[in-house]
């Protein structure tokens, strides 16, 4: 078959909502786009453990500590589901880890913000995981089979994360005036970075159209952002917190909220590596990798020893 025929067959499969599987023919650009997107997503899960890991030892009680620990463990799991999905496209795990550690690969900018108080555990679960869910639910129908299947598992677990976070922020907002102020402060700091998570405006997002044609992406950045805002504003009202956007207003005609201008300079600046925690996050990942080298070596040595022992037992 000619290249044009292969491409036409590929696109007609996608148009018919059939999934593309690892062995199937696919355009190189589709493969590259997926490798980039899935590995960035995996890196985000791995780096995403750091801001919350910061509070595990200081959780206010045992129940909250165990829940936070379980959530962070899930994120490690999500990273692993996604790395293995990316590997089905011919990308090696080693190379992906290398790109993350060297700073070459990107991950979600949101994780370059610091977690200053316990209330941030609430704001992250509620807003950051909430935004992630809005982004990720449509990915369960992404055209690439292994990615879609990994996302089904991720989404199932993610809803626990959001409720866990909302429970934290809800409890604080019903607490003492100091606790309520803490919750409000966390919302003030996380709101804008959270709505930036949906990415640049549609007219600034050059690859979106192609990803939509390939059904990797189902909704545009602005559509998803609007949906998230419309869903979240009433939740903030319910717990008596104020969203830090003076332009936020219900638009009766459109049936949705109007909201203020996003500071895209900040967004691109954090992506470029100048966010408050970019360097600390990369250092933490590199330290973990380097300090864990002996564990990996010991595991290999132990496996070899075990094999040798089995072989000797067989021989005798």
């Amino acid at each position: 078959m000619s290249r044009e025929e292969l491409e036409a067959e590929f696109q007609s499969k996608i148009d018919a909502e059939q999934r593309i599987e690892p062995q199937d023919w696919m355009p190189e650009a589709y493969r590259k786009t997926l490798i980039r997107q899935i590995s960035q997503h995996a890196h985000s899960e791995i780096v995403g453990m750091l801001p919350e890991g910061n509070w595990i030892t200081r959780a206010p009680n045992m129940r909250r500590k165990m829940a936070l620990l379980a959530k962070v463990q899930d994120e490690a799991g999500h990273g692993l589901y996604l790395y293995s999905a990316a590997e089905t496209l011919g990308m090696s795990r080693e190379k992906m880890v290398e790109d993350l550690l060297s700073g070459k690969a990107k991950y979600s900018s949101i994780f370059n913000y610091p977690t200053l108080t316990w209330a941030d555990m609430g704001a992250i679960g509620w807003l950051v995981d909430g935004a992630a869910i809005a982004n990720q639910v449509p990915l369960c129908r992404a055209s690439y089979g292994p990615y879609a299947r990994a996302m089904v598992r991720v989404c199932k677990e993610e809803s626990f994360h959001q409720r866990q976070g909302f429970d934290v922020i809800c409890t604080l907002s019903k607490g003492t005036p100091e606790q309520k102020a803490m919750a409000q402060d966390a919302l003030d700091r996380w709101w804008w970075p959270a709505i930036m998570m949906f990415g640049p405006n549609d007219d600034e997002s050059p690859n979106s159209a192609r990803s939509m044609k390939w059904k990797i992406k189902r909704f545009s950045n602005d559509q998803l952002r609007q949906e998230f805002i419309d869903m979240t504003v009433p939740q903030a009202e319910l717990i008596g917190l104020t969203i830090p956007d003076p332009d936020l207003k219900w638009n009766e005609g459109k049936g949705q909220y109007d909201f203020g201008e996003i500071n895209w300079d900040e967004f691109f600046n954090v992506i470029k590596g100048n966010g408050p925690c970019n360097k600390a996050r990369l250092k933490a990942r590199n330290d973990a990798h380097n300090n864990g080298a002996w564990v990996r070596e010991a595991a290999v040595a132990y496996a070899e020893k075990r094999t040798n022992r089995k072989n000797t037992a067989k021989a005798s």
């Binding site: 379980a70 463990q73 899930d74 799991g77 692993l80 589901y81 293995s84 999905a85 590997e87 795990r93 299947r149 990994a150 598992r153 677990e157 595991a299 290999v300 132990y302 496996a303 075990r306 094999t307």
Partner: peptide, 24 residues
């Protein structure tokens, strides 16, 4: 089939699968 993972040997692969794929 639920996915894949890296491990040094079968025993470690089973242990890791427990943690990665059966947390619930």
């Amino acid at each position: 089939h639920v996915g894949s993972l890296h491990a040094v040997d079968a025993e470690m692969a089973i242990e890791n699968s427990r943690d990665v794929y059966t947390r619930r």
